[in-house]
């Protein structure tokens, strides 16, 4: 039997909604398991990509330095990198902060807001720093495919992965293209 396709997934500045939607393929996951195995993913709790991953599914945009590191790890490890969902593709909901200067966001959250005690900007070196703006992932690495939707439906994942697995150029018919 040929080697299984290695799939890695992650959520950057996203809500895991795309992952939940992926799991909505329901019992088809058994078929998927026949041909694919999961590498780094919240589904496996594996924390690092192995060297040669076939497909990386990235949910969420880039809002901080850690997101950038994770995305780069995916790009380096994955033959095919896929932007999954509105946030990965255009920044999505998190990008709605983009018209507010970061200073104001931080001041409002940690210094000036009602009910803040001991106001200070968190500065632990363990914490990732925020980027000035939230960016979609194609602005930082090359992306091979895009699966739009908030979230993309389970059928989108299914169509895309089965296309790839059977060597077809992935394509989405009209009913599966949604930006919401």
């Amino acid at each position: 039997m040929a080697d299984k396709i290695k799939v890695a997934t992650t959520s950057l500045a996203g809500c895991f909604g795309c992952h939940m939607s992926f799991l909505d393929i329901d019992e088809r996951i058994l078929d998927l398991a026949q041909i694919a195995e999961f590498d780094r993913s919240p589904l496996t709790d594996i924390k690092q990509c192995s060297d040669h991953v076939d497909i990386g599914l990235v949910e969420g945009g880039l809002c901080n330095s850690e997101n950038v590191h994770t995305l780069r790890e995916f790009r380096k490890s994955c033959k095919i990198l896929v932007a999954v969902g509105a946030c990965a593709i255009n920044g999505g909901l998190p990008a709605m902060r983009n018209h507010i200067p970061l200073e104001e966001c931080l001041e409002e959250s940690y210094l000036d807001a009602v009910g803040v005690e001991n106001p200070q900007i968190p500065n632990d070196v363990e914490l990732p720093l925020l980027l000035n703006k939230v960016h979609p992932i194609h602005e930082v690495v090359k992306v091979d495919y895009f699966l739009p939707g908030c979230p993309p439906s389970a059928d989108v994942f299914w169509k895309f992965l089965t296309d790839l697995a059977s060597g077809r150029e992935p394509s989405l018919p009209y009913e599966l293209v949604h930006y919401d």
């Binding site: 950038v68 790009r75 970061l102 200073e103 500065n123 070196v125 990732p128 980027l131 000035n132 703006k133």
Partner: peptide
């Protein structure tokens, strides 16, 4: 400029440690 995009956060958090920077590395 990725590192430049962290400038405000660095200043406000008063940090300049190694984790507070990003390289403009190109992947692939």
């Amino acid at each position: 400029d990725l590192d430049g995009a962290l400038e405000v956060a660095r200043r406000m958090a008063g940090r300049d440690d190694a984790h507070a920077h990003l390289e403009q590395e190109a992947v692939l």
